[in-house]
Design a protein around this nucleic acid. Structure first.
Length: 269
DNA sequence: CACTTGACCTGTCCGC
DNA sequence: TGCGGACAGGTCAAGT
């Protein structure tokens, strides 16, 4: 923030949408997030929307650009596949740093928005409540669930138009913490279960933030270091392991709504 | 309408 | 060692 973008090198046109000229030279006044989207705001009213999808990274190169492009077993903890080969867009920042958008699978994108698109961004994204904001309460969650009583709770949590930002790992971990089976129907949850679920969603997300996120393979923080949340996961990636809570069930993995879902069949009901 | 599947890409891992 | 298939943090569009 407080810098501007001097130049944009679009290495992969498919990963870049909109007119790059709109944001070149204008001061970055805010960098924020809505759900899984990153939003850069510029002094001239234009903006830049970024979604990392499955494998995207935004990396700040502080000194030598080569510093964040190594692909070896760097003791600093950088991922082996954080490689220049996957750099799709390069931003030259006015302070001399370089900001890279890397994305192996090319699902992610960078999109420049004009002033009008910035005005309607919130509606256009169509995202639900932010789970870490004050307005995400048990009461709020209860009302959301009542609107889609037949929806299974797992796909409900993944639907960004309900709650914005919960992905597959966090849906599984939150349902484990709430002792709710992923294939329960939204309308069948008791008031107590709903209140508890709202609480543990926040706890799971906050814990992951503290640990730097879930670095399965590609995700890194802007300095290239990885997060350690998965080291402490109870169900995600734990298929076949004994449940850490009841010590009785074995964690199973089932496809629910097309997504791998991990849970303890004994203590999640 | 609501849910599921396939597609988008590229890579890894596992079994044969 | 090679090869095919399944699977991977997300989200659309199309199909049922």
């Amino acid at each position: 923030m407080g810098q501007s973008i001097r130049a944009i090198d679009i290495v992969a046109p498919k990963s870049f949408q909109g007119n790059p000229e709109l944001i070149i030279g204008s001061l970055i006044t805010d960098i924020g997030r809505r759900g899984k989207h990153l939003i850069f705001e510029f002094e001239n009213g234009c903006g830049m929307l970024v979604h990392l999808k499955m494998s995207g990274q935004m990396i700040i190169c502080r000194d030598d650009p080569a510093d964040c492009l190594n692909d070896g077993d760097d003791p600093s903890g950088r991922l082996y596949d954080q490689n220049e080969k996957y750099t799709r867009v390069k931003f030259k920042i006015s302070n001399g740093q370089e900001l890279l958008f890397n994305d192996m699978r090319r699902f992610g994108f960078v999109r420049v928005l004009d002033q009008n698109q910035m005005q309607t961004l919130e509606e256009d994204l169509g995202l639900g409540v932010e789970p870490l904001e004050d307005d995400f309460t048990a009461d709020h969650l209860s009302k959301l669930l009542k609107k889609k009583p037949k929806s299974l709770i797992k796909p409900f949590l993944l639907d960004q138009s309900n709650i914005a930002g919960i992905g597959n790992i966090y849906a599984d971990e939150a349902l484990f913490a709430a002792m709710i089976a992923p294939d329960r129907q939204a309308g069948d949850l008791s008031a107590g279960e709903i209140a508890n679920l709202a609480e543990v969603i926040q706890e799971v997300l906050e814990k992951s933030l503290k640990l730097g996120g879930s670095s399965m393979r590609m995700y890194v923080q802007t300095d290239g270091s990885r997060g350690s949340f998965l080291d402490q996961a109870n169900v995600y990636g734990k298929e076949g392991f004994l449940c850490s809570r009841c010590n009785e069930g074995k964690i199973v993995r089932l496809k629910i709504a097309g997504r791998s879902s991990h849970f303890c069949p004994v203590c999640q009901r």
